[in-house]
Design a protein around this nucleic acid. Structure first.
Lengths: 152, 152
DNA sequence: GCTGAAAATATGCGTCG
DNA sequence: CGACGCATATTTTCAGC
């Protein structure tokens, strides 16, 4: 889909705060409420806007402990990869999972309450997955930047 | 803030789709529209709901190339750390940046169009930051899971 | 893309358990 | 205190141009 300057401004705004009313957006972008409405619907239909979500404060939910787990599989056949991925997706502590290049096969972003819970996760969930070779974990000491908004 | 079962269900729903109407939510949770409204306002006021955002399809925006950059600083004094972080935050290609434990000091999630653009980013932006020692990059081969929603 | 009206929703209030 | 129903302010959504 081809985007003009107004579409891009609109996406910048919606990535920042998707609960703004069309009226507010129309004032910012100097367009009528209907024009804003039509543009947003078009962006939604095209799939460019995937969904609208609420972002929560993980600290308040006792999920302030973030760990990046690098995972190596024992073998790399298609069957092993598919099986590992199917199981990894199910783990609620795993917010993100990427098949990556380099020494390790996967990079996982894991969110738990504290070290105790991470230990539980490692023992009972991650290392008991099929085909897991070795893992290496890095703990987040400080979240310097974390945004879902991309440049336009 | 103390959350009961209904609050948790509400947060599950809002993490999935924050554009649902209070009417839809009231049907799902068997509560009145007003009760849903009051609960959401309370969750917003407490800061537990941080914000509402639109998530976009990066592929369609020509940002389908994701790279994880592990960064080592030349020194680790407070001054160097602060300076690196202040500069890293500014980079639009960097969606996330964490100070982490382990061999490398930082883990960055970088989003660009393709390898060419990543090369540009490395040469002109990342490696020209102050106090950068070495870096090691892993390319995302496959995004297996990527969610913003946490368990409740 | 705009204006203007209709339908749906959000929001504030008084009241009840 | 928190849930409810009702009344009204706002917003969304849809014609017609």
């Amino acid at each position: 889909m081809k985007l003009d300057t107004i579409d891009k401004q609109l996406l910048v705004e919606l990535q920042r705060d998707c609960k703004q009313t069309n009226k507010e957006l129309s004032a910012k972008l100097n367009l009528s409420v209907t024009a804003i409405y039509e543009r947003i619907k078009k962006l939604e239909r095209s799939g460019l806007i995937q969904n609208y979500v609420a972002l929560l404060d993980k600290k308040q939910l006792d999920l302030g402990f973030m760990v990046f787990c690098h995972v190596k599989l024992t073998q790399h056949s298609g069957k092993y990869i598919t099986e590992f991925e199917r199981e990894a997706i199910q783990l609620e502590e795993v917010l993100e999972c990427y098949h990556v290049s380099g020494e390790y096969d996967y990079l996982l972003k894991v969110v738990v309450k504290d070290m105790e819970h991470f230990r539980e996760f490692m023992i009972n969930k991650l290392t008991s997955l099929q085909h897991i070779g070795s893992t290496q974990s890095s703990f987040s000491i400080n979240e310097v930047k974390n945004t879902t908004a991309v440049r336009l």
